[in-house]
Design a protein around this nucleic acid. Structure first.
Lengths: 365, 365
DNA sequence: ATGAAAGCGCTAACAC
DNA sequence: GTGTTAGCGCTTTCAT
C-alpha cells in the first residue's frame, strides 16, 4: 500500500508519484501507462486494468506541467475582471470557473482595479503561465495593454468591444435593448424627467451604457439636461455621491437609471439618508441584477444581464478559439440578452393619478 | 525585429519564443541566458547586457511550466474559500493575491460552496497542478478530504483549526477575545438578553464562534436560553430567516450578536421588514467588518477581523512551509487579532435610562 | 498492441 | 565565466 520510492531525485516532493512508479508496479512501459491514462482505445483491456489498479494503489496523478510542456497547451484560462470586490464579478467568476472546470480547464483570475500597471503585470503573468486563452470581462481596458496578447495570437474574448482583430471574439451585450427596456418601463409609468448615473466615462462599457440611455430617451422624444447626467464609478460609494448630487436638484428628477446595480444600491442609500422615499418620490432602476438586488429596501428593479449567459458565452468563445475542431471555430460574436426585472424600487411618478390610486391602496393595507 | 523561428515544432503557439531564440540572437549558450535571467552574479556584465537586449528584441518570457518541471516548484499557491459570492471572501482573495504576486507566486482560487464533492475535486486539481502550498480559508472543511494533501506533505495553512499534524500551520483567530469584545460592548450598555445567530454548526469555525459567545456570556453571569440561539448559514438569507424567528419571540431579546456580517445584514433586513427599529428596539452586532458593513442602515457595529492580517499571515505561513531558508520556518501558529468597531446598529436597550436620554437627544436634532 | 527513445523549455551539475 | 549535457514527467513517433 505504501508508495514505492523508485524515484531518487532529491528535489521532488516526498510522496509525489510519477508515471514510472505506475509503470513498474503494473509491469508495463511508461508509454502504455500514458496510453491507458489518455484512454487510447488500442490498449489491451487486461493491461489497462492493471495500469488503473496500479494508479489507484500508488495514488498517481499526472503532472500537468509536464503534460503542458509536451502538448504546448496548459489547459488553463485567464479571466480578467475589473474589481473582484464588486459583487457582480464573484458571481461571474463562479459561473466561469464551473464551466471551465467542466471542460477540463483551470482558471487564473485577475482583477485590474482599473490600474493599467496592474493590468499589464496581469497579462504578462498570464502569458508566462501559458494560458490557452484570456477572457477580458472588464468594464473597459486600455487597448495598448492587450496588444501583447493580440500579437502572440492568443485566443481572446472581450465584452462589449475590443480591438476588431482576428483571433478576437466578442461578447456583445445588448445595452441598446437592455437600457431601452428600463427607460421604457419608466416612461410607460409616466416618468419624463429621468436622470442617469453612469460609470467612469473613460471606460468603453460605461460609455456604451450611457449612449444607450441617451438613445432610448431620444426615441421617446425625451431629453436629459446636463445636470441629470452624473458620472459615478460603478461602486456603491460612487452611487451615493452621484445621487447626493441629484438629490440637491430642484425639481428632483422623478426617476434615476443607473449604469449598474452597485451604483443603484448606493443611490438607494443616498435617498434614504436624504429622507426621500423610493419609489414614491423617485424611482430607481439598476443594471446587472446581482444577487444583492432583490434584498434591497425596496427590492431593486433592474435590467438583468445573466452571469450564467455571459460566462457560458465566454467559455464557449474561448474554446472556439483554442480547440481546432471546435464546432463554432469560425464564430466571432456572441450576443448576450438582457431582461427587465421589475421589483419595488420603481413606480409611478409623484402626483400622477396612478400614484395616488396606488398610494391609497398601499395606505389601506 | 521579427521573431526568428529557429524552432520548428508544429505544436507551438506561433509567436512563442524560447530560450534558444534568445541564445542564438545574443550569440551565447542557453545556459548563459538562463543564468542572466536568474541574475546569477557570475555572468559577464557585457554578455548579460547582450542577453537582456536580445530578450527584449524577441519578446522572450521564460516558460513557467518548464521551470516548474525542472525545479519541482510551480510558484503557485492554492487558496480555498467557502463561497466566493460571500463578500468577505473576495476581499480576502484580493489581499491574498496581491501579497502572493509580490512574492512571485500565482494563485489558484477555489470555492467549495460547502460541497464535499467540489472540495475533493478542487484538492485533486490543486495537487495535479502542483501547487506549492494550499491555504484553506473556509468556515470549516471535512478533514478526510484534506487527508490527501497531508499525506503528500504539502505545506498547508488552516484558519482556526485543522488536524494537528506536522507541516500544517494554523491561523488562530482570537474568537474568544473578538466575540467577548462584542458581548461586553452590549453588556456594558445594559443588555442582558442577548441572542446569537450562528453559522452552520457542522462547520468548525461556526462552532468556535458560538462557543466563544457562550463563554463570554457565562463570564458575565449571563445565560442564553435555547430559543435565543439560532442557527444561520453565514449568508444574508440565513440571517433573515434566523432573525424572523427571533422577532417572533416575546419578549424580544434586546440585542443580537451574529456569527458574521452577512448574517447581521440579513438580520437588519428582517428587522426592517418586521418594522422593528435598530438600535432602539434591538441592537445588532456583526463579525468580520466587510466593506458593506459601514453602508448599512444603520451602519453596522461589528468585530473586525482584518482581511489584510489574515491574508498576510496566510502567505507568510505558506512561505514558511515552502521555502527552506525562510526565517520563520519553524513557526506553526499565527495569531489574528480582532477589534471592535462601534457604529450605529448598537445602542442602549429599550427602556433603560441612557436610552431615554439618548432618544431625547436624537429627537431634538 | 507494446516498448524504446526523442524531445517539449528549462535549470544545474560538470567540464573546460 | 561559459558551454555542454543530463534530465524534470510526460506524449508521441517509430520500430517491433
Amino acid at each position: 500500500m505504501s508508495i514505492s520510492k523508485s524515484n531518487s531525485s532529491n528535489r521532488r516532493r516526498p510522496g509525489a508519484v510519477s508515471i514510472r512508479d505506475v509503470a513498474s508496479r503494473a509491469g508495463v512501459s511508461i508509454a502504455t501507462v500514458s496510453r491507458a491514462v489518455n484512454r487510447i482505445p488500442t490498449v489491451d483491456p487486461e493491461l489497462a486494468r492493471r495500469v488503473w489498479q496500479a494508479i489507484d494503489e500508488v495514488g498517481y496523478l499526472p503532472n500537468t506541467q509536464a503534460r503542458a510542456l509536451v502538448s504546448g497547451r496548459s489547459r488553463t484560462l485567464g479571466l480578467i475582471v475589473s474589481e473582484i470586490t464588486n459583487p457582480f464579478f464573484p458571481e461571474l467568476i463562479q459561473e466561469f470557473e464551473n464551466l471551465a472546470v467542466e471542460q477540463g480547464y483551470e482558471v487564473f483570475v485577475g482583477s485590474t482595479s482599473y490600474d493599467p500597471a496592474r493590468t499589464e503585470s496581469l497579462i504578462r503573468r498570464m502569458l508566462q503561465r501559458n494560458v490557452d486563452g484570456v477572457a477580458v470581462m472588464t468594464f473597459g481596458i486600455e487597448e495598448e495593454i492587450v496588444q501583447k496578447l493580440v500579437e502572440r495570437e492568443f485566443p481572446l474574448v472581450f465584452v462589449d468591444a475590443g480591438p476588431a482583430l482576428p483571433n478576437i471574439r466578442l461578447l456583445k451585450v445588448d445595452y441598446g435593448e437592455g437600457i431601452r427596456q428600463g427607460v421604457q418601463h419608466l416612461a410607460a409609468m409616466g416618468h419624463r424627467s429621468i436622470a442617469f448615473i453612469s460609470g467612469p466615462l473613460r471606460l468603453r462599457s460605461a460609455v456604451a451604457r450611457r449612449d444607450a440611455f441617451l438613445k432610448s430617451m431620444a426615441e421617446l422624444g425625451l431629453t436629459a439636461p446636463a445636470e441629470h447626467m452624473v458620472e459615478g464609478n460603478h461602486s456603491m460609494e460612487g452611487g451615493i455621491a452621484a445621487m447626493e448630487q441629484l438629490a440637491a436638484l430642484s425639481p428632483l428628477p422623478t426617476a434615476v437609471m443607473c449604469s449598474n446595480d452597485m451604483t443603484a444600491i448606493g443611490a438607494l442609500h443616498a435617498l434614504y439618508r436624504t429622507t426621500h422615499t423610493v419609489p414614491e418620490e423617485i424611482s430607481v432602476v439598476g443594471f446587472d441584477d446581482i444577487h444583492l438586488a432583490q434584498f434591497m429596501l425596496p427590492p431593486l428593479t433592474t435590467v438583468q444581464m445573466s452571469c450564467k449567459d455571459l460566462a457560458a458565452a465566454a467559455v464557449e468563445a474561448l474554446r472556439a478559439g483554442i480547440e481546432r475542431d471546435h464546432p463554432q471555430a469560425a464564430k466571432t460574436e456572441w450576443r448576450i440578452p438582457t431582461r427587465l426585472v421589475v421589483r419595488r424600487s420603481s413606480g409611478f411618478p409623484a402626483g400622477s393619478l396612478p400614484a395616488l390610486v396606488h398610494g391609497a391602496k398601499a395606505a389601506r393595507k
